[in-house]
Design a protein around this nucleic acid. Sequence first.
DNA 1: ACTCAAAATACAATCGATTGTATTATTGAA
DNA 2: TTCAATAATACAATCGATTGTATTTTGAGT
Lengths: 342, 342
Amino acid sequence: MENKTTIHDIAKALKIDASTVSRALNNSPRVSQKTKARILAKANEMGYQRNVLASNLRKSVTNTIGVIVPRISRHFFSSVISGIEEAAYDAGYNVIICQSLEQLKRERKIIETLLANRVAGVLLSVSMETVEFDHLLNMKNNGTPFLFFDRHCEIEGISSVLIDDLQGGFEATEHLILNGCKNIGHFSGPQELAIYRNRTAGYRKALEKHKIPFRPELILRSSLMENDGAEGAKTLLSLPYDIDGLFSANDVAAIGAMKYFKKEGIRVPENVAIVGFSNEPVSGIIDPSLTTIDQPGFQIGQIATKLLLDEISNSSKDNIIIGKTTIQKSSLIERDSSRRIT
Amino acid sequence: MENKTTIHDIAKALKIDASTVSRALNNSPRVSQKTKARILAKANEMGYQRNVLASNLRKSVTNTIGVIVPRISRHFFSSVISGIEEAAYDAGYNVIICQSLEQLKRERKIIETLLANRVAGVLLSVSMETVEFDHLLNMKNNGTPFLFFDRHCEIEGISSVLIDDLQGGFEATEHLILNGCKNIGHFSGPQELAIYRNRTAGYRKALEKHKIPFRPELILRSSLMENDGAEGAKTLLSLPYDIDGLFSANDVAAIGAMKYFKKEGIRVPENVAIVGFSNEPVSGIIDPSLTTIDQPGFQIGQIATKLLLDEISNSSKDNIIIGKTTIQKSSLIERDSSRRIT
DNA sequence: ACTCAAAATACAATCGATTGTATTATTGAA
DNA sequence: TTCAATAATACAATCGATTGTATTTTGAGT
């Protein structure tokens, strides 16, 4: 029943030493072709499978990298994960996927577990609650290479693969302006996260460029869930401005707002034009379809993995690793929610 | 830099034996309270972290379970995963999540990797291509406990946690009939998968009950992607029947059809009423909102995990495990795509 | 046939934790 | 005080694979 053939079993069966078996299975030049063939045949016959635990223990390495995302159900993150899996798989690494569910507590626990399991490295996109970095600094001191993607923290020596959120925010907002919007509301997320600060900065930059006065009260901060979008829409309508545009820092909140507007009889895009962020699949399906900023998730995953694997292989050579930031381009996808006859 | 305090380091620092340190850290009654306290304090001071690899190797167990789903991006599967994580976490297990992307080749490779990593058990929902079971039988012979959820294969001695697809298909179809549909099309998936056979059986059962003639040509089989839905809709319209209802075995294809109907100026639900399956979040957002069958993903994940953990702990006692099938109820969510003034 | 370098294989330690057995320390009862 | 019983700790083997070193085997050249 239980499959537990070891190299010792093979060695015994062939009356040779286990070290030779090990070397043969690792295709070492120290074993003659003849015995290699015998060993391989025997291993196959006995259904041998290397015990990765033992192997890794001895080599004191692992071929596993950990990935932490806020939620796997978000399209952007599942694209990134696919990219990571692809790149990791090619390099012979396994991937452990974990979700923090936006909770700092869970993020801490996950990192603890990953470190205990001696993963070779970690790719992470921090939770919305991650305002303290002790667990990340701990991981750094521990010597485990890691790398941020999308949502990062400023930690010296740690690299990030990001998208150009400022540019994305700028394009989204300018697009609204070019479609005739004058009073543009903006939904943003926790300001601790650079992605949201940058999207907001892009918003401001577009206003400035087009000489539209900036009004702080038009920026609403929340967790950007669907309900936050609806609340935000309500708040915007209650302000003494004739809101005619909305740039939401994610699609989910944009959709919440769109639904609220619809319910209140306010037409999209005629009365209010909307642009979201992330290009969730639902955005192409909702009516009117939502203009949004597409992020190349798959590529981000691939790039981040390659960089991490580089760091893993260099970390042994104890040369100082300097945190680098790689920026990926985002692109505006124009759909019906912002298309106006001007 | 590198954190590699071992029990031997602690032992040396305290001038005691490593075995005592090990026992103290495992809270064995064989160590006095006094030394336990000293050891714990020292371990803490030295930043000790148990090397799970070594520990598991010695105990020849692992605290990791593997999960294989077709795609993590599907809402149903990500709910199941959340349930699995919750239950596994409570029991002190880690979870490795893998996606087969509906490819048999990848499924095989994943199982190989999981076995090589000596996971304690595996939870899986097979790919659409899984018509051969050699890799699963291999896993069984290997002695690794596993369990199907949602999509299963008939393998003796292997348990499954399923939803009542027949009942779901029945309810969906009967709902259409009660809303006045007479000529109901049906999108189904690969017939190798029981879930699709059962949903189809439910469809037939509802027709029979209401004495509506069954026409095989109204059943269209595909991979149920969005595009398949559009194609299917086109095919249905080309048939010499006045199609007025559609039961799709998943939401994605239902939405594909809905979009096609809209484009062709056919009104939903007035001309064709539609019911999907799975309750993807997009179904509540699309216009008209899609009536569908909700599956309790989170609970399925929890239940499946508990059953698997049971099998893992019993498997050592080598009592014969008899495959059990646990059925979870699904429920119809009535929305606009099927609501008609009758 | 004989030497010697190169090739092939064997020996033995190791990775870090666990655990059965042996030894030492302690305590209570006689 | 002394001895047995028990508590506390130490010793040593083990999990399965890897790897540096030592030994044996092979084969070329004389």
